[in-house]
Each structure stands twice: as C-alpha cells, then as structure tokens.
Amino acid sequence: MAPTTRAMRARAAASADRLPPDALFHTLVRLPARDLCRLRAVCRSWRALTSDPLFVRAHAAAHRGPLLVAKFRDDPTGVYVLDLAGNVLKRITGAADAGLHVLCARLDLACLATDWNRCRVLNPATGAVQILPQGPAPEHRHRVNLATPYTFFALGLVAATGEYKVFRMFNRLEQVFEVLTVSRSSNTGQSQSCWRAMPKPSFFIQAFTGVLVDAVIYFLISRSYLHVSHTDARARPDYIMSFDLEREEWRRGLTGPVGGEIIASGEGVLSDNYRLDLAELKGSLVLVYKRLQQLTFVMELWFLNDFENGLWEKEYTIQIQHQLVVTAANTFLNYLKTVLVLDDGRLVIYDARAGHLVIGDPRSSYFAPVMETARPLDSLGIYTGSLLSLQ
C-alpha cells in the first residue's frame, strides 16, 4: 500500500535504500502505473528508478492493458490518452484542430490527418508534433488531381530499422502513392523529410479499407472491378493488395476466404446486404465479413494464418437479432469497426457513427458500452507506449 501520511512517507524514504536494488525493482514493477506515479514522490531514488527507461520498458511488458489515443467530438483541439474505462490519463493541447482525426494505428506514436492532405505525427509522451509537408514528391509535381486531393495516410514502424514511415495515397482521378520517413528528432515543427514516389499496384484499391500489420498495409480492391462482366478471375470482393513499408514495394495479391460464398449467394457481388472490412487484431490481418440476414446482423472474423499459402481461419462469429438491424442497417454494416481482442477473448468494437466503444463476448453476442461517459469519440487509435512515460 502506498504511504498515506507524511510520517509514513518519511519512513518509506528512510528505508528505501535498505532494500536490495533488484528486490525494489521487481517489487515496484508489479504495481499499477497510476500508483507508481504517486510513489515517485516518496524519495529521489524511487523517482529515479521508476523514470529509468529500463524500468519503463519492463513495466510496459508486465502491464499490457490497452490504452487509447483519441479525440472527442466536443474538443476539436485536444488529443487524449485514455484507458478502456474512459479515464483520461493525459490531455495534449496544440497537437490537433477541428479537421484532424486520429488514425487507427497500434504504436507509441499517433498519426493525425485529414482527407484533404494535412497530416502530422504526435508523440503522446512528450507532446512533440511533426507537421508533414503537403507538397508531392518531385515525380508527382505536375499530376492534375493533386490540386484538390483526397488522401489516405497510414503510419507504420519498420522493426528491422526502427524507422517510422508514413504512407500517403492521393485518390482522385488516379491513385498516386508516396512514402515519407519520419524524422527521429523530437522537436516540434515542420518535418524536413521529403515524400518519395512509389509504384502503383495492379488494381485500384479501396482507401478506406487500409489497415497496417507489421509494416505492411493491406487494402481490398475497388468495387469497380466486381462487375459480372469482368474477366479477371482475381476480381473477387475479398481480393487484397498489400504494400510493404520496409521494402517500399507492392506484394502479390491475396485471395480472401469468403469471396466464393458471396458470389454463390445469388445476390450479386455489389449487393448492399454485406460489407467487407480489414482489421489488425492480435498481430494478424483480419477480414471482417458483415452481412444482414433478415432481422439478424452477422459478423465473421477471419484471421490470416499464412500469407504465402493464403490460409485463413474463422475465429469469431457474432449474431445480433434486433429490429434496429433493419432500421439502422448502415450503422451495422458501415460503421462498426473491431479494434481490439482482449486477453479473455472479448471484443472491443467502435461504432464510428455514434462515437462509442462497446465490449462484448462473442459467445453470448452481448455487448455493452465500454466507457461510462456520454462524450462521443471523434476518432481513436491504440497507444502502445507506457503510462509512466506520459507523466
């Protein structure tokens, strides 16, 4: 228990140095971060220990509870670090404005961007912000559609080099692709890095389906290829293209597990009664197959086990029966995003239209709000940094 009176804190400080360093380290590393932040006031030696990068890394490895980096709709300039109970652990000012949204990532940095080509990278621990240049790579300077661009961004970490890279796609009359390496400098301000032109994939892709897993960004191909008259056998609704951030090149295509079922259903591949999404869960690429069956909303989560052999495994099937499924079909099909799988197997799902997180057990199909707050979220990502670094 943490010292609660001045006398108790004095005794703890006096006895702190009598504990063997290893014993103190292993004792404190077991405590929750919020308690440790209070215990830093006990004495200088405890503060030095719990602020040491080695201790911070060990504590993060021992306490893997997920944190969120998010924006609320009622606060256009604030970026928050939250726990799953909705407790605000840190509010960062000056990093955002009304047009910037937190991109869905799983890193110790956050990426905030707009559809109209503004992007910045935020370090939640320090508050440092890098504003990325809006101008295109030299090879793309004279492209017509870049004057009024619709853009997609993704931030990834290349584990082999420790570099953070941002992927950008211009998505107007044609699709144009670029990559920028984020400066390792912690200073706030305009990034000095330049965008580099990247090749195109063999298909047009759906930008809003982009998801990053281990420095590879995956996309479903554009629905424009899905007309029955198209002769390419790869043109299935679950066909996936991927870009390798480390190699800075497109990989070969990947066939998903449900395209044959959709084609055989008789409703047509352009039917409004199903949607496909991509997600990153438990370190794997996941194909999310959502569909309406009369008054039942069905969501299947297919995990990619082997890219080279195209092997998928269905790990979750969720069924919700309710009249709201019919009256609010677009909410269920378009706006529900699976963001986390907890250690006990429960799922955390983000309802982007309502701005709420729900958590539930797929075995019972029972879902309830995660956060005990009425403040709707604007956008969110997963923060993998340490709470100790935030203080």
Results as ranks from 00 to 15, higher is better:
A2N: 09
A13M: 12
S15W: 13
A16N: 09
P21I: 04
V29Q: 10
L31E: 04
D35H: 10
L36W: 08
C37R: 13
R40L: 03
A41V: 10
C43V: 14
R47I: 03
L54A: 08
R64P: 04
L67G: 04
V69S: 02
D83S: 08
R91F: 03
A95N: 11
L112W: 01
L112F: 05
T114N: 06
D115G: 06
N117I: 07
V121H: 06
N123C: 05
Q130N: 06
I131T: 13
P133K: 12
P138H: 08
H140M: 10
V144R: 15
L146I: 15
A147H: 15
T151K: 04
F152H: 14
L157M: 13
L157A: 03
V158I: 13
A159Q: 10
F167G: 01
R168Y: 03
M169I: 10
R172N: 15
R172G: 04
R172S: 03
Q175A: 04
F177E: 02
T188W: 09
Q190H: 13
Q192K: 07
C194P: 03
R196D: 07
P199D: 12
P201Y: 10
I205F: 05
S222P: 04
R223Q: 03
H227S: 15
T231Q: 14
Y239I: 00
D244T: 05
E246M: 05
R251E: 06
R252T: 08
G253S: 11
P257W: 00
E261L: 07
G266D: 01
E267T: 07
V269Y: 13
L270E: 06
S271W: 12
G283D: 03
S284I: 03
L285Y: 00
V288G: 00
R291Q: 11
Q293G: 02
L295F: 14
L304F: 01
N305G: 06
N305I: 05
W312V: 00
W312C: 00
Q321L: 07
Q323N: 10
V326R: 14
T331E: 07
Y335C: 02
K337S: 13
L342F: 06
D344F: 07
G345L: 07
A352N: 12
L357P: 02
S364G: 04
M371H: 11
T373D: 06
A374P: 13
S379N: 09
L380S: 02
S386I: 00
L387A: 02
